[in-house]
Structures are given as C-alpha cells and as structure tokens.
Design a binder for these strands. Structure first.
Ligand SMILES: [Mn+2]
Ligand SMILES: [Mn+2]
Ligand SMILES: [Mn+2]
Ligand SMILES: [Mn+2]
Lengths: 227, 227
DNA sequence: AATAATTTTTAGGTATGACTAAAAATAAGA
DNA sequence: TCTTATTTTTAGTCATACCTAAAAATTATT
C-alpha cells in the first residue's frame, strides 16, 4: 500500500466535480462541462485531466472525456462526506441558514484529518442527510440515495408529498424557499397544474396556497408520505 | 476603506509567525529566525517580506529585519484567535487530546468566515484560554495576557501554585505531561531545587511526588493560588 | 462526402511560492 | 582596523495552476 501524498485543493475540486457531473450512471464527463462548473478555461481542464490521469484518479482519453477510477471515486465521496457533514454542523450547531453554508463548506471540505471528520460525524449523531436533504456518505463511502424521491414537478394532482431534498446550487432558490416557508419535511399537496407555463399550484402544511414555477418545482424533490 | 483581497495561506502563516517571534515588545524579527520557524530557506523569506512590505503588512528594511504594521498585527491576531478557538473546539467538543489539536488547527485557522469564527466562539461560550492555557483574542483583537503567570522554573521552594499554561510547541512535552497527570489547573508544590542540574521536585494534587527537569519546568507557566 | 461549427488540445505565457548557488552586507574576532 | 564568519539578499530555476491564441480533432449541416 503506497501512501500517496495528499491532493491539492484544486485537484480535490476537480475530482469532486467530475463525480457530480458523471452522475450515478458514471457517464463520461466532457472538458467543457467541467470548465463551466469549475469556472476555468477548457485548456486548464485538459492540463489537470492529464495530471489526474497520471495519478490514476481518472481514466482519460484525449477528446473522449473522463471518468473517475475507483480510487478517484473513493476520494470524491470522502470530500463530499466532509462537505455535507460540515454543512450539517453549521446549520444544526451554529445556526447558519441553509443558504449560508455552501461557501464555507467549500473551504472546510479540504481540511485533512480523519479524526476530525469522524468526530464531527459522531458529534452530530451520524446524520443521514445534510441541510439540503442530500445524503451524507458514511465512513466507508456508502451513499444512501433515497430511491423513492422524485421531482415535485412530476407529481400528479391531489397527491400529498413530503419535501425531502432541494437543489443547493442556487442561493436564490434557497432564500426564496425560506421566504415561502418551505423547508425539508414540509407537506405539499399539488392542487393544480397549469398547462400554459407548466407551473403548479400547491397547498403547504399551513393550508397556504401558492404557485410554483416549473423551474422551482424541478429543483425540489419529494417522496410520498408513508403514514 | 479599500477592501483588500484575502491573503494566501502562506502569507497568513508568515504574518502569524512574525507576530509570535516579535513578542510583546515588538522586536524586529530576523530573516533566519523566520526561516527556521517556517521551515523554509532564508531566500524565500526575503521574497515574502518584500511582498508583505508592498502590502503594508510589515515594515521591512533590507538587512534590518521586519516588524508588523498595525494592519499586519490585526491580521495576525485574528488568525491566532481562529487557531485557538478551533483548538478549544476540538478538545471541548470532539474529545481531542491537547497534543492532537495543533496540526488540525494549523489548517482550520485559514478558513475565511467571520460568521463561522464568531459562531464557534459563542458555541464554546466565549472561552478565555485555549487547551494549552494561551489567551484567546476576542472579536476586537484584545488579548488578555495573564500578567501574573510565571515559569514554574522560577518558583521558590514550598510555594503552592496552579498550572495555567503549557508550551504547546512540543508534542512530546504535552504527551509527557499527560502521562504524569499534569494538566491545566493542577496544583503544584515545589519541594526541592536540585542545584546540580537545576531540576525540581514537585508534589502534585494527588500528593504524588516527582522530579521535573529544568527544561520541562521552563515550559510550564503557573500562578500563585489566590484562595 | 464536403464544408462548417464546435469542442478539445497544444503551445507559449503569467503569478505564486518554493529552491540552490553566488554575491553583498553586516557582525564578530584578532 | 583588518580579516573572517555569519546573515541576508540577489539571480536564476522549478512546479503548480491558471491564462490566451492557435491548431487539431470531432461533430453537425448541407
Ligand atoms: Mn454544498
Ligand atoms: Mn448540501
Ligand atoms: Mn496550536
Ligand atoms: Mn494552543
């Protein structure tokens, strides 16, 4: 077992982003999609992919995109574990809002100390999901994808569902959801589907009715209530 | 008020180390002393001092050493605040030993988020000292140097004192102190001073007698009990 | 299949923060 | 003071992680 030197923050960010873009079906990730997400130029991506290729973290063929090796995937999952544990810590222990945690977690996810990560995990009592409802990988890298969750945009009229996850990528979405008092665990009844713009009318816990655009509904995942 | 871009981790480490070496009387800090502490070569120090000089964080004259400007000092104190708060968090909340926190705190001290720092401070209930007894600067940068503390090596026979601070720089010292069951708050009576090697005999809380070398005694600070 | 558009790679730079080796300044010793 | 030793700075490299502009490969369109 050759103990490889720790990755740079940059390398870690690349590996993590490849994991996200690759998705559960492990699609090849294109240079341009990475460039956009990482907010760099395509040429920088090519450079880094070569390096990560040499380090056996991605398998990369020129012009054909890349995928993580199992080693790279292990690393990605571990970074995501840290990111989500820190987000949970910030919200549960330090009273951050769910819209305030991402940038700080982007920094904290690079701290190297397994004792720290596992300590935070235990301190939080081994949470299953982060403040946005995303699953937190366990110590061994297992991820509990809640298979039963579906986008709110796909729910049929009169179904009553529970919010289990929201897209954390947009600060604005998270703030908007706060404003309309929608959070994880909220109960939602879809009362109408407007064909014209594909928006939906919903009724929240408190019987409050409101309209959600298609775009918003697509970024909220729900599951059917198992009462 | 020009909002200056955040410093790099390297720049922060330099500023912090200059603060420590400069001491309370703000002595000029030599290139070599910095090189030794930061574990780099003197030429690298010169390069960085020029840069920090340009940024008005140190005042630096060739061949004459450097001191922090008041701006640089402010930054140094803030980094030290973060370092010590994190150490306290690790020990008080995650059950780290006082010998295990330094390396992790070296990383955590660079996280940029005033909301986070102040959140941790409040979460810990505004601690005054870190796990090694070093004072934690408050939000405004005030440091409560406990003026009454003195090295154990200077205490005269039969005096009864309380341990208030230990030198955190040596992993080995901290482990040794753990082993002999000496911690912050321990009560110590000096029973004998051995002229030959300047070691001392002490009696701990539990009436246990033991000998401490001069070097160990120099790295333990105590204050007289005010009962 | 030929041409055009898009994507990706190469080639050549830049800034940061390290390094070595040699020169210059300062401090110490005779 | 003169000479030597030490400290510090300069000069020139190197690796990382970016960048721009141009070339090459791939994909889409006629
Ligand atoms: Mn996040
Ligand atoms: Mn999240
Ligand atoms: Mn420390
Ligand atoms: Mn400390």
């Amino acid at each position: 077992m050759t103990k490889s030197k720790a990755l740079s923050q940059s390398e870690e960010n690349y590996v993590k982003e490849i994991f996200h873009l690759s998705g559960r079906d492990k699609m090849k990730v294109s240079t341009n999609s990475l460039a956009e997400k990482l907010d760099t130029k395509a040429s920088s991506i090519t450079d880094m992919l070569k390096k990560l290729g040499d380090k056996k973290l991605v398998s990369y063929e020129k012009y054909k995109g890349c995928v993580l090796t199992s080693q790279g995937e292990k690393i990605a999952v571990h970074i995501i574990r840290k990111h989500r544990l820190w987000e949970t810590f910030l919200v549960n222990k330090l009273n951050f809002g769910w819209d305030e945690v991402h940038d700080v977690a982007e920094q904290l996810e690079h701290i190297q100390s397994s004792k720290l990560v596992d300590g935070i995990d235990r301190f939080l009592n081994f949470p299953k999901v982060d403040p946005h409802g995303d699953p937190i990988p366990d110590k061994d890298g297992n991820i509990d994808y809640q298979e039963s969750k579906v986008p709110l945009s796909e729910i049929s009229i009169d179904a009553i569902v529970e919010v289990v996850q929201v897209n954390e990528d947009s600060f604005e979405l998270l703030q908007y959801l706060d404003q309309i008092n929608l959070s994880l665990g909220s109960s939602i009844k879809v009362t109408e589907r407007v064909a014209f713009d594909e928006s939906i009318m919903i009724e929240l816990d408190d019987k409050h009715k409101l309209s959600l655009s298609k775009k918003v509904a697509e970024n909220i995942a729900v599951k059917f209530k198992t009462k």
